[in-house]
Design a protein around this nucleic acid. Structure first.
Length: 876
RNA sequence: GGGCGCAUAGCUCAGCUGGUUAGAGCGCAGCCUUCACACGGCUGAGGUCGGGGGUUCGAGUCCCUCUGCGCCCACCA
């Protein structure tokens, strides 16, 4: 049975059917528990690493964030991937389908702090006597980073168990021998190894630079983690006096509190109004700092008065101006979001009126940005330095996507990956990737083209992967950032807060002439950008990694194209010089039943477990698989009910079909000779072709739609038409044809449906087969009767089946109109049609008589019409 | 401001390279109960495809334009 399928891979063997053993009353109840346990026990989805590389289909499964619960969106998109995985497995691929858990990062860190009542102090040494607090203390206990990470690990282990249970209930065909967590040893090793390679190849660097900073989280934030929010603000018009005494320059600003950080004014070089001012000097109001008036193209003559004040740093434009115009640094906003103390008169803080400056600044020092803003406006107004009233506006302000207060730009030391020089190569890689749906490539391209800074990968947090580097301290105790001491790869993973660099002793930590560890951890994307390497055991199992990388498929949602997909492409390009996968399948979002996006703040998040219990896993999967690739889909319990009904129908139709073919040997495909049987199988063969083509393009929804439509017509019409004939003497050609066709159709249909409704198809399959349907071969045209293989069966337009089904429909309509039972006999059926169609009808005349209860059948040539005369029902 | 996507029966959506009277499911209405399935079956009534223009023998299906919705990006003066 080891045939080669059209994709060049050996087909899995199709076990011959066994004598059917069908339960009296089939039920969906308990199928999830029964089959998920059996699949686990028999390793149905275990990856065979001895498989040839060409057979491997590897999936870069998205690791869900473990903080909190899985929601229906997860069920939705993971089902999509699972249908593809199951299809690939049946087509002869050895599917590498791991599962990860994203437990690295801020959300986990916050939960641990609250759950255990602890705070991480990276300055502390690991305490060997540390015990897990039973209850959170009133005041948080400070603990070392290794102990903190240990607690994080404990907490997420519980979540991960719950996740795995849900995934098994849903029927994901994941290989549970291949799991990882983004904070586990393997992930830390891979992250640190990847980082060291970036460092040694010159792709990573650290520098002190203006950094987007969340003042609450006290951490840097990368471009990808930022979002705009519309916030009310106001334009304040301020007057800067010219030092030559020739009047004043008026500027407009939404951030008057940064006046003390002003380092220049700027206008567009072509702006005639300000050209005479370029090169002159003005003085800041209140603080009396002399600043130049400069020209730069980014200044917009249309905005405000056409002149902007450049502060260090109000926004990213300020950073650009500061860099390109080589301006001095005069920062006043601290990392805590409050205004830092400043001594006017010190170098860099020269003022024409030191006393006034001190007095004004004293009013705002120590205040938050928002508080300082109101106060400074009062001071300006009181001093008559504001022109007119503030003009309220609404404008976009940058936030950390998880943050509550606007980002500030502070100066700090960070690690960066050089992505800006890669733009062209990354665009090329984007074009090489197969996108499903194809238009999703635009999101990637827009992002790459819009990159305006290198990728900041360091975060000032604790629960994350530490940078595997230390720094020497000179004799004055100053840190030498330019010559990091790196860990040897064989030692990874290391934690520089507790591990010691080679050649040093723990006693030298923090002392002049000694060393300090890098205090930061990596951005969560710096780790998750390596999911193919982590899942494939790049750092510790090169043989496995060679089998699975580059992977075949990255499934993910569209909103993280700019983060996860992008960063994975970057890392793969820099580490391996290749794409990380051949294709990316982008799923849409699940919307609340109202059609709105689900979010915790809206309180419309739908949890999956009750739905799985109510509609069954197959029912929920059916709903999920009906959602087109890349399309946002609303939660629809109606669709789940339909899915459940389909599952029940599969059980009953299988049972019924098996009752017809039971008893005696099932004839092979070439026993199918009756025209109507061949017509049905011809239709089915086309469905196989369509479903296969759809799956090849990752269009699982289309595959399901075609298969399901056929299945219902199979039940409604074909089964009704042949159920009588199939019961007749099996040694006769007619009954043998029906039985062979029924057996083949059921086998093919169950296999076509298996990726979508794995539980019910496995159940029905088990009634007449050994082994799992999920390791059976995907249906193939070679299984069909030779007549169909050669394509001699006509299309659905004029098939025996379609003509007969049409007449059967007319008979049913007549019975319904007459309010009679479907079992009512038809005394006389008169079919008028053209001779060709009548000839087709004649080929299935006895099946039609059986199914319709037809006594007399008259066929006349003429304009199409069906006349039905109902008879009296037998008393008996 | 730029880009992408979507607008087809009451609802959720199919309709692939343009071709006979536009499809499905849900919902709705009616009918049929024990011989696969009431966790059911059968039948039916509902759209002229967001508006306008164009190409074509022919357009829901291609082009232009307008409108509405959603998303992504953009230098917050």
């Amino acid at each position: 049975m080891d045939e080669t399928a059209t994709n060049g891979l050996p087909r899995p063997p199709l076990e011959p059917a066994t004598a059917p053993v069908v339960p009296e009353r089939p039920t969906l109840d308990g199928l999830e528990g029964k089959w998920s346990a059996l699949w686990a026990e028999s390793g149905t989805y275990a990856f065979d690493r001895s498989a040839d590389r060409s057979r491997v289909f590897a999936i870069d499964t998205p690791p869900p964030t473990v903080s909190g619960e899985l929601h229906l969106g997860h069920v939705f998109s993971y089902t999509h991937t699972d249908t593809v995985a199951r299809y690939r497995r049946m087509r002869g691929h050895e599917v590498f389908y791991p599962m990860g858990f994203d437990d690295n990062g801020l959300p986990t860190e916050r939960r641990v702090q609250n759950y255990y009542g602890v705070l991480c102090d990276p300055g502390l040494r690991q305490d060997p006597s540390f015990v897990v607090p039973e209850k959170p203390e009133k005041h948080p206990v400070a603990i070392s980073r290794p102990d903190f990470i240990d607690l994080c690990g404990r907490l997420v282990a519980e979540d991960e168990k719950a996740f795995e249970d849900l995934w098994r209930t849903l029927g994901l065909s994941v290989d549970w021998n291949h799991t990882y967590a983004t904070i586990d040893t393997g992930a830390r090793r891979a992250s640190q190894r990847g980082f060291l390679h970036l460092l040694s190849n010159g792709h990573a660097y650290s520098t002190e630079a203006p950094t987007q900073w969340d003042v609450d989280f006290q951490s840097a934030v990368s471009q990808a983690e930022m979002e705009d929010r519309e916030l009310p603000g106001a334009y304040h018009r301020l007057r800067f006096a010219r030092v030559d005494g020739n009047g004043a320059v008026e500027i407009e600003t939404t951030r008057p509190e940064l006046l003390a950080a002003c380092v220049a004014l700027v206008a567009h070089p072509d702006d005639a109004r300000y050209q005479p001012l370029f090169g002159t000097t003005v003085v800041t109001p209140l603080f009396g700092v002399a600043v130049p008036v400069l020209a730069h193209e980014l200044a917009d003559p249309e905005k405000g008065s056409g002149v902007a004040m450049i502060c260090t740093f109000g926004d990213t434009t300020d950073v650009t101006w500061w860099r390109e115009l080589s301006l001095p640094t005069r920062t006043i906003v601290g990392r805590n979001g409050r205004l830092k103390p400043v001594v006017w008169g010190d170098p860099g803080w020269e003022s024409t009126d030191r006393t006034a400056a001190d007095q004004a600044y004293g009013e705002i020092a120590g205040k938050t940005v928002a508080q300082a803003r109101s106060r400074i406006v009062e001071l300006l107004a009181a001093a008559g330095l504001m022109v007119g009233e503030a003009k309220p506006i609404t404008h976009p302000v940058k936030f950390y996507e998880k943050g509550d207060r606007p980002l500030e730009i502070v100066s700090s030391r960070q690690w960066y990956v050089r992505t800006l020089p890669l733009r062209e190569r990354l665009l090329e890689r984007g074009r090489q990737l197969q996108w499903h749906p194809p238009y999703m490539v635009h999101r990637y391209e827009a992002w790459v083209e819009g990159l305006n800074s290198d990728w900041n990968i360091s975060r000032q947090r604790y629960f994350g992967v530490p940078f595997p580097v230390w720094y020497r301290l000179n004799d004055e105790g100053e840190i030498d950032h330019d010559h990091p001491l790196v860990a040897d790869e064989s030692r990874l993973p290391v934690d520089p807060s507790s591990d010691v660099p080679d050649g040093f002793l723990e006693e030298q930590r923090g002392l002049p002439g000694g060393f300090v560890g890098d205090p930061d951890v990596m951005d969560t994307w710096a780790t998750s950008s390596l999911t193919p390497q982590i899942a494939g055991h790049w750092a510790d199992d090169p043989e496995l990694f060679a089998k699975v990388f580059p992977m075949d498929l990255r499934p993910q949602s569209h909103e993280i194209i700019r983060t996860w997909l992008f960063s994975t492409v970057v890392r793969s390009e820099l580490e391996h010089g290749s794409l990380p996968w051949a294709a990316a399948a982008i799923s849409g979002w699940v919307l609340a039943p109202s059609g709105k996006k689900m979010s915790k703040s809206r309180g419309n998040v739908v949890t999956p477990l009750p739905l799985l219990q109510t509609h069954g896993s197959d029912g929920v999967r059916y709903w999920a698989a009906s959602g087109r690739p890349g399309t946002d889909t609303a939660v629809d319990e109606g669709q789940m009910k339909v899915g459940r009904r389909l599952a029940i129908k599969i059980l009953n139709a299988s049972r019924f079909t098996l009752s017809r073919i039971a008893g005696g040997e099932l004839p092979g495909p070439d026993a199918v000779v009756a025209p109507i049987d061949l017509a049905m199988l011809g239709d089915l063969a086309r469905v196989v072709d369509e479903a296969t083509a759809a799956f090849e393009g990752y269009d699982y929804a289309r595959a399901l739609e075609r298969t399901e439509a056929f299945f219902w017509s199979f039940c409604d019409d074909y089964l009704e038409l042949v159920k009588g004939r199939a019961y007749e003497d099996p040694s006769q050609a007619g009954p043998a044809s029906a039985r062979a066709a029924l057996g083949l159709a059921l086998s093919v249909l169950l296999r076509l449906l298996a990726p979508f409704v794995p539980f019910v198809t496995e159940e029905a399959w088990s009634w007449w087969h050994q082994g799992s349907i999920h390791r059976a071969p995907w249906p193939d045209v070679t299984e069909f009767p030779a007549a169909i293989v050669r394509g001699t069966v006509s299309g659905p337009e004029d098939s025996v089946l379609s003509v007969v089904a049409g007449v059967l429909g007319a008979v049913r309509r007549a019975k319904t109109t007459a309010k009679r039972s479907m079992r009512a006999p038809v005394a006389r059926l008169t079919v008028v049609d053209d001779p060709a169609r009548l000839a087709l009808l004649a080929q299935a005349e006895s099946d039609l008589r059986d199914a319709g209860g037809v006594i007399d059948l008259i066929m006349n040539s003429g304009p199409p019409d069906v006349g039905v005369e109902l008879g009296e029902e037998d008393a008996g």
